[in-house]
Amino acid sequence: MSCSRRQFLTRVGALVAVSGAAGGVLAQTLNINGVRYGMIHDETLCIGCNACMDACREVNNVPEGVSRLTIIRSEPQGSFPDVKYHFFRHSCQHCDDAPCVDVCPTGASYRDAANGIVDVNPDLCVGCQYCIAACPYRVRFIHPIGKTADKCDFCRKTNLKAGKQPACVESCPTKALTFGNLDDPDSSISRMLRQKTTYRYKLALGTKPKVYRVPFKFGEVHQ
């Protein structure tokens, strides 16, 4: 019996609905280890050197032509010689209410209940690109070799697994990145959130992103 791609995705989605529904509820409400990882990008410290991008690519074996992390430089602000640039981190926000997870027909996109990281299981991904279309931050891509959805995973399978900080955090020469457990009031990230003014990108969408930003001091903050 022949089966179109659409029919295949529909049937697979139905098969994972029962197990996926229970897992989805768990992922939305519980963190097994009391851990919910997040990150702060201090835009007042970032110099746009791209060391974070290079480290991410090397540690996670990201092929040329795609990127899990990009630093976007603004147009020059101010007059010579006092010119400033705003450097914006473009990467997965690891949303607590992630649209990419909601639309995935196979359960490949998921939020890990143990640590809050939004990730992709390549063994379940069929490359339908629904998650890419649903992500309001436009940070997902199809891996040119694996042909499955890919993005930042906070170095979950590499540095975190080895007990290290994410590659971008370790490589930043100005310490513009802070990573840690948002649910631990004594963590470095929780302390910084209490001390500094921060914003989150596209917060009004209700995605509950876990990447915070210390705003650039010059010009406007665009959300």
Rank of each mutant, 00 (worst) to 15 (best):
A17F: 11
D123M: 13
K164Q: 11
A113V: 09
A162Q: 15
E43R: 05
Q165M: 15
Q77L: 15
Q195C: 05
H143Y: 07
A204Y: 12
V118S: 02
Y212P: 01
D123C: 06
D186L: 12
N31T: 12
F87W: 14
V139F: 01
N181L: 02
R68Y: 11
R36S: 10
V126T: 11
A176P: 04
C92A: 15
F88D: 15
V221P: 01
A27I: 02
V59C: 03
P173D: 08
G13R: 07
R5N: 12
I142N: 03
E64S: 14
A114M: 05
G38R: 12
V12I: 13
T10R: 11
E64A: 12
L30H: 08
V35W: 05
S74I: 04
P99N: 08
R156N: 09
G146N: 13
A204P: 06
T29E: 08
V59D: 02
P185Y: 14
N159T: 11
D153T: 14
Q7K: 14
G116A: 01
D97N: 15
V59P: 00
K202A: 02
N159P: 04
E170C: 07
V169K: 03
R73Y: 03
K84T: 13
E43Q: 13
D97H: 14
V12D: 09
T198M: 08
C131L: 04
L9W: 04
A55L: 04
A114N: 07
N181C: 02
I72Y: 09
V103M: 08
S79W: 13
R57Y: 04
I132H: 00
G34D: 03
S19N: 13
C152E: 04
C135Q: 04
R11W: 10
N159S: 14
V126S: 05
C155R: 00
C135S: 06
G38D: 15
F141E: 05
N60P: 02
F154A: 15
I142Y: 06
Y201M: 13
P173W: 06
T178A: 02
V25F: 11
V169L: 10
L193M: 02
G78T: 09
C3L: 14
S67T: 11
C46D: 09
K147V: 01
D42R: 04
N61F: 12
S188L: 12
Q93C: 08
R194C: 11
V214K: 01
L15Q: 12
D102I: 12
I40N: 03
L182P: 02
P81G: 11
A98D: 08
G48T: 05
C95F: 10
R57H: 09
C100P: 00
D119A: 10
D119Y: 14
N33P: 05
T207P: 01
V120P: 02
N115G: 01
V211I: 15
C49S: 09
N31K: 09
L160N: 05
L15H: 07
